[in-house]
């Protein structure tokens, strides 16, 4: 018989920190020694079902644990982030995995000096100011994952300079980022432009303009994933502002429209050191594409010199695809795998 009680409080708290908070809290009835041990956990992991009840719960919970918590993970359909989370000086990881609606109170003060990972989804509402303030107020932030939907961005969102990983899923294409991040090395971008936003006085050109500005700022990254219905590179090509992604060695993309292929070829031209490309084709258009190889303007012959792995899935076996493959094969001189 092994006696777990021979372990010190600190070790028991460490063990409890690895458990979902609900399970850890049950340990309070084991014995008197265990009565309050769980409130010392450094990681809070909650999977919530009933929303209203849970707000009260997490409020009291976090106030108990405050000053020690390094990680907060919440999985729930609805969640209102309690203010005390933004005052948690020890917090390193904040991961809010909210499937339906996540609300922030209006934030007045934020004190998250140690936060490195911030991950949240936001659907609806008008909490832009809170989000902008939150991102601005985390000096050590390295990883930022945001899913935004129907969120109106009034001003540019300023990213922190320590950021190394940015994941952005934006279903409104209203984003206007200012990144002064010099250390960004990986970006995962999914943006969908939704036409009805033009009713709000936003002209598509403005939006695409913002988007291109954002792209120019990303050009130091090493890894890139892009999914978008906006032909961003074609646009940038038109206004002669194509940036060069000098460091980029690995790129993945999902093309949902046939015209995206041209955009993608344009992109290949501005990534001279690309080594690996993964393309997923996912479209159901039947109109044949205008002569692709002509539209693709300059042949990026030299630029494809480093490419050694291309992976394309979702091929339907039509002429355009044969053209695309032919194009890649013709120009990629050191290609090893296709």
């Amino acid at each position: 018989m092994a006696n777990i009680d021979s372990l010190s409080d600190a070790i028991l708290i460490c063990i409890l920190s690895f458990l979902p908070t609900k399970v850890a809290a049950r340990s309070s009835v084991i014995s008197k020694r265990w009565r309050h041990l769980w409130t010392g956990v450094t990681a809070v992991e909650l999977e919530l079902q009933q929303s209203l009840y849970c707000i009260i719960l997490i409020l009291s919970l976090l106030q108990t644990c405050m000053g020690k918590v390094e990680e907060v993970h919440v999985t729930s359909a609805y969640f209102t982030v309690p203010r005390c989370i933004f005052q948690c000086e020890t917090l390193v990881n904040l991961d809010l995995n909210i499937s339906q609606r996540c609300t922030f109170y209006k934030l007045t003060t934020i004190n998250l000096p140690k936060l490195k990972l911030l991950c949240f989804s936001f659907r609806g509402g008008n909490s832009f100011d809170s989000i902008a303030m939150l991102i601005k107020s985390c000096p050590l932030l390295e990883t930022l994952k945001m899913t935004l939907e129907s969120l109106f961005f009034h001003n540019a969102l300023a990213l922190r300079s320590k950021l190394t990983y940015l994941c952005l899923v934006d279903n409104g294409l209203l984003i206007d980022f200012v990144t002064n991040s010099t250390e960004l090395d990986s970006a995962y971008i999914v943006v969908t432009y939704v036409a009805f936003f033009s009713d709000w006085g936003l002209v598509a050109d403005d939006v695409v303009g913002n988007f291109s500005k954002f792209f120019v700022q990303l050009c130091s990254i090493f890894e890139f994933h892009l999914e978008s219905n906006v032909k961003i590179f074609s646009h940038m090509h038109l206004v002669n502002s194509l940036p060069v992604f000098r460091n980029l060695s690995s790129a993945t993309t999902m093309l949902t429209r046939r015209s995206g292929v041209i955009d993608f070829l344009l992109f290949l031209q501005i990534a001279p050191n690309l080594k690996e490309v993964i393309v997923t084709l996912n479209y159901n258009e039947s109109n044949p594409l205008a002569d692709m190889t002509q539209s693709a303007v300059v042949v990026p012959e030299l630029l494809l010199n480093n490419l050694d792995c291309v992976n394309i899935t979702g091929l339907q076996g039509n002429n355009d695809e044969v053209n695309l493959l032919g194009y890649i094969l013709k120009n990629a001189t050191v290609l090893n795998e296709l």
């Binding site: 018989m1 777990i4 049950r26 340990s27 009835v29 014995s31 008197k32 265990w34």
Partner: peptide, 15 residues
């Protein structure tokens, strides 16, 4: 369960 934890680790329930 709490009871199983007490049993496995020989913890006396002093409540």
């Amino acid at each position: 369960t709490v009871q199983q934890i007490r049993q496995i680790f020989d913890i006396k329930n002093d409540f």
